[in-house]
Amino acid sequence: MVRTVPVSLPMTEDDARGLRAGDLVLLSGNIVTGRDRIHKFLLEQKPSSESLPFPLAGSVLYHCGPIMKETEEGFIVVAAGPTTSMRVEMYEHGVIGGCGIRGVMGKGGMGDLTRQALVERGCVYMHTIGGAAVYLAERITKVLGVWMLEEFGLAEAMWHLEVKDFPAIVTMDAHGNDTHREIEALSLERFREMAGIRQG
């Protein structure tokens, strides 16, 4: 049975460690987006947390390059589903260690380096539904700000967003459980059976 857990942000380390792989979370509070270029920048340039325009401690970093529209009242979110998380695997453990986020959200899961960082730092990885961009955009209630817009463009900038009951599934928890890894191992075993490949 799926456990549904409402989560208000910012999260504490205890909040993050209290979540388990398989939990359906409904996030409410402030999150930030960041994808390929933001991760590369955070790791290579190592900006101090004071120089960042938004507080990242306790927040969730969402792997998302949204479609935004500029109106007279400011930016609105048109569509905002997740992007493939694995592309930032080489950076994420450093980001988790460096800025105190308690959640990473995207799609498809991440690798060994991230899994270790989640356990060490007390953080979770959440998978949200890829391609459900309008459904998810409806759960973003406000655009609070943007950083690196000029440099990286609309899709790759860091957006600071307010969300309400934003749904995601914890697939990698702070205890080393990893739904993606389990499914991958099972599917590999089945493929080997089908293909007549000897195990090991």
């Binding site: 390059g65 479609i67 569509a79 992007t83 890829g130 391609g131 961009a133 309008v134 955009a137």
Partner: peptide
């Protein structure tokens, strides 16, 4: 549900067009 919402509000199904 997302497909229905996208069609009704004439917004891209996925942000990655």
């Amino acid at each position: 549900e997302n497909v229905r919402l996208a069609r009704d509000t004439v917004r891209p199904i996925c942000q990655d067009t």
